[in-house]
Amino acid sequence: MQLRSWTPSRREIMEVGLASVLAAALAPRLAMATEETVAAELKKLYGDKPMAGGKIKLDLPEIAENGLVVPLNVDVESPMTEQDYVKAVHVFADGNPLPQVVTYRFTPQSGKAAASVRMRLAQTQNVIAVAEMSNGALHTAKAQVKVTIGGCGG
């Protein structure tokens, strides 16, 4: 049974049964982030500056195995030289209580504008990454992660 509620630790999740998980899933939810709140955060950072596709590889599971620890790998294409490197990457999720997930600040010495972290996802939602290049250009990428109770295979 995949978790849909915002719950504290893996141990506690394991201790709840089917009914309580579902009950939690269906209980009145906390206000959740939306596409709009993510857009508002981006506007705070970069105003109305246009964002291009490409360059960002968002490596996420299609389906979360555990909504409390979803691996998030982001990798931005860049030579990472003094003249041309990735300054920052912001990652948002549009279905969590708060939209921000992580912000990375890279330097040419990073060698590679890539990093991995683990995040909580409260429900099926989009993960959005925005990369700011040293010349000020912005790139963005989006991927959906499904959070499900699954079903029984094989």
Partner: peptide
């Protein structure tokens, strides 16, 4: 099976 931790 890629979905083992979800299905099982």
């Amino acid at each position: 099976f890629p979905r083992t931790p979800i299905s099982n």
